[in-house]
Design a protein around this nucleic acid. Structure first.
Ligand SMILES: Nc1ncnc2c1ncn2[C@@H]1O[C@H](COP(=O)(O)OP(=O)(O)OP(=O)(O)O)[C@@H](O)[C@H]1O
Length: 726
DNA sequence: CCCCAATGCGAATAG
DNA sequence: CGCATTGGGG
């Protein structure tokens, strides 16, 4: 096997096959390449059977790419039995074979996040809990946290000691019962239930422990407690565990990721070997210098320095625009300037929130530049697609009342809330599913017309269920749309909207066709299709075709582009307003900046707007502190002003001054305002403060002020007893 | 039961 | 601003 293109450390990582191994891989140091070759090395040089190898990747796309690369090195035959997948896919696979031990059907559904929300709201409604007092979002977050920490409802109830946790724990319990009755699981259950299974059925755990003698985990810094536990269990017997990660790239704390997993690896496995990959093969020295400088502002980190053989090349270009629309146009004009040197495919535009894509999209569209937006409002979130998916889920899992309720009146067959309540009551009284309950329609007390319509629906579903056993997914979709009358309903309605729905369903069939191409017809086909669909990530759906790529910085993790734009570098946007006053959240934002910076190979553009429209209101934000953390000699396109204020340890020097550059200078806050971002003010009660944002205008103008004494406050300009200092 | 218009309220990152 | 809920008339 040819390993000549590997450097010394990479070789070490590849060849240290036995025992625990921690690969601390800096950005762009070739960890993906190392992981791939390590797996290939195990197969071809160490004669480890593919059957005994597990590799966990962060996305399905990465899994498929790794599979292909391993196949290219050792041949498809030798690679066939290897498990390369994400945590979630792995768990689906394990649960599919074993979930019956936990009482769920093996045809279980993976609940859609929207349905999940509806289940929570429904539970709240039944318990007369006001959704205005308790945001379902918080409850979903609570439940997710519990599951990531492997806390069962019972335990959550016992340990909850303060409101609203006490209430949330009860909702959690009911929620879990509802899911169980529906033989449905949510994303977090996939991991938690797999662990539960392993704990309950030792033989199953032993089976997988013996199977997975060589375990690899990519992006280990972003694993959560449950995933950590799962790996611990699996690796316990053979202790051949190789984890790869970079603690500076941990950006998923908000969904439970725990950076201490990677930091404590050496304690978990005292015999662990550690290999550091610190040579970056991706970026110019300029870009790397910027990234290193920024991340150095994080206090809670082990020092590390990435090196590269590349030299100081083109400087980082700073773009300052008046509004977000102008920012979009600036980005586009810079992209046009790159014509000849780079293709559209080489360019990525990164931002903090999905909503920021809009202005860039508009500008790209006007200039006829092809582009693709990753994530955001997905194709699969459209009504017609969700309806179809609900039909398929019910066909696959008749216990899935959650999906059944969605389609029970689609197309319209005169079923309303009253009818649903009746069926539900009957189902609950007899501890059966609604679908099952309808077989006894006569006893429920429905009107003849409705009862007939529902009997027909059930018959249709039963037939489709039979068809699902021997049809391809594409065929089944066609049959479903026809038999249920869904397509007919859309065709009968001649509106543009219905036309577009039909088109979308056609489009959906290209997805099913691709799936059918790769998968044999079997009685597991529909299950696999549905679980694959549930687990697609944003990165998975990045299309290959030419165009500029727009995505959040989170979605960009692991990717690389010759040209990168980072937009919206403003306090309150990036770092996010919600992170500004919490040191550890701020460090996470900074790591996100680090990830974004290190995506770039050659050219990097950093951009901000003086004012932007947020929820219909004009706001003006200060320059992002991250901007100020990049050494100025690496940046072109901006002149700096003298440093001035310093508040709460935040170096406001360059950062808070409206920078002057290529674009043009805009006075923040508008001409009518007395105050502008960056002004130092005094307040009779709060003392000295700094204006961090000016919103709205005239009498409704609001000021965000950070006071030295009391921290952040929002004041109405008109009434605030403050005066400008200096 | 269905549909539309008015209203009111919330608001990040994601599998 | 955009979505979800709500209330009234058909
Ligand atoms: N030994 C090598 N010689 C030349 N190029 C290499 C070598 N190792 C890796 N590379 C290149 O470096 C780039 C970065 O590799 P890779 O994507 O694996 O990095 P990474 O460690 O996953 O980065 P990140 O953590 O930032 O996502 C790739 O384009 C890869 O081809």
């Amino acid at each position: 096997m040819d390993l000549s293109m590997m450097n010394e450390e990479q070789l070490q990582a590849i060849k240290s096959t036995d025992g625990p191994l921690l690969i601390m891989a800096g950005a762009g140091s070739g960890k993906t390449r190392v992981l791939t070759h390590r797996v290939a090395y195990l197969l071809s040089e160490k004669d480890v059977p593919a059957y005994n190898i597990l590799a966990i990747t962060f996305t399905n796309k990465a899994a498929n790419e790794m599979k292909l690369r391993v196949e290219r090195i050792v041949g498809a035959q030798d690679a066939r039995d290897i498990w390369i997948s994400t945590f979630h896919s792995m768990c689906v696979r394990i649960l599919r074979s074993n979930i019956n031990y936990l009482g769920y059907d093996r045809s279980f559904s993976i609940i859609d996040p929207t349905d999940q929300r509806n289940v929570i709201k429904d539970i709240m409604r039944r318990r007369n809990i006001d959704v205005k007092q308790h945001n379902p979002r918080n409850i979903i977050g609570y439940i997710s946290n519990q599951k990531n920490a492997l806390t069962k409802p019972k335990e959550a109830m016992e340990t909850a000691d303060k409101f609203p946790d006490t209430l949330y724990a009860e909702i959690y319990q009911t929620y879990q019962e509802v899911l169980y009755r529906n033989s449905s699981v949510d994303f977090d259950d996939l991991i938690m239930l797999t662990i539960e299974l392993f704990q309950k059925e030792k033989s199953v755990l032993e089976f997988y422990q013996n199977k997975f003698q060589y375990i690899h985990v990519d992006e280990y810094q972003d694993t959560n407690q449950a995933q950590y536990e799962l790996i611990q269990l699996l690796a316990k017997k053979y202790r051949n565990i190789c984890v790869v990660g970079d603690s500076d790239q941990s950006i998923y704390k908000f969904r439970g990721a725990d950076i201490t997993n990677i930091l404590n690896f050496e304690e978990d496995y005292p015999e662990a070997k550690i290999v550091k990959l610190e040579e970056n093969y991706r970026s110019s020295q300029t870009i790397l210098d910027a990234a290193n400088a920024v991340i150095q502002n994080n206090m809670e980190r082990k020092p590390k320095n990435l090196r590269t053989k590349r030299s100081l090349e083109e400087k980082i270009t700073s773009i300052v625009s008046g509004t977000e629309r102008e920012e979009g146009h600036s980005v586009v004009s810079h992209i046009m300037d790159l014509k000849g040197k780079y293709k559209y495919n080489d360019v990525a535009v990164l931002y903090r929130t999905n909503a920021q894509s809009r202005a860039v999209e508009d500008a790209l569209m006007k200039s006829n530049i092809p582009y693709k937006v990753v994530g955001g409002m997905k194709f699969y979130e459209r009504k017609e697609i969700k309806d179809l998916m609900s039909f398929l889920r019910v066909i696959q899992n008749p216990r899935d009342d959650i999906s059944y309720e969605r389609i029970i009146n689609v197309p319209k067959r005169g079923v309303g809330q009253k009818t649903i309540d009746k069926i539900r009551a009957h189902a609950e009284a007899h501890e059966i599913s609604m679908y099952e309950a309808l077989k006894a329609a006569d006893f429920i007390g429905l009107s003849g017309k409705v009862a007939n319509a529902l009997a027909l629906l059930n018959e249709t579903l039963e037939n489709l269920q039979k068809k699902s056993q021997f049809m391809s997914v594409t065929e089944l979709v066609d049959e479903t749309l026809h038999d249920t009358g869904y397509l007919e309903m859309l065709e009968a309605d001649k509106t543009l909207e219905s036309k577009s729905r039909i088109e979308n369903l056609e489009e959906f069939k290209t997805v099913t066709m691709e799936f059918d191409r790769d998968n044999e017809v079997s009685d597991s086909l529909l299950f696999e299709f549905l679980s694959d669909m549930a687990l697609v990530s944003d990165q998975d759906s990045i299309e290959e075709d030419s165009g500029v790529t727009l995505m959040t910085m989170h979605a960009s993790k692991g990717l690389e582009y010759p040209v990168v734009f980072i937009i919206g570098l403003e306090e309150g946007i990036f770092p996010s307003r919600r992170a500004i006053f919490d040191e550890s959240e701020l460090e996470e934002e900074r790591r996100l900046m680090y990830v974004a910076l290190t995506r770039a190979e050659d050219r990097l553009f950093i951009s901000r707007a003086e004012t932007r429209t947020i929820y219909g209101k004009q706001e003006s934000n200060m320059n992002s502190r991250f901007y100020g953390e990049i050494p100025e000699e690496l940046i072109e396109g901006v002149q700096y002003e003298r440093p001035s204020v310093r508040i709460g340890g935040y170096n406001a020097d360059r950062a808070n001054r409206p920078a002057r550059g290529k674009s043009r200078v805009v006075t923040t806050g508008g001409a009518t305002s007395k105050f502008k971002t960056g002004d130092k003010v005094t307040h009779p009660k709060f003392g000295e403060g700094l204006i961090t944002a000016v919103k709205g205008e005239g009498s409704s103008e609001e000021l965000d002020v950070v006071f030295k004494s009391v921290g952040p406050k929002r004041l109405l300009s008109q009434f605030a007893p403050i005066s400008k200092k200096e």
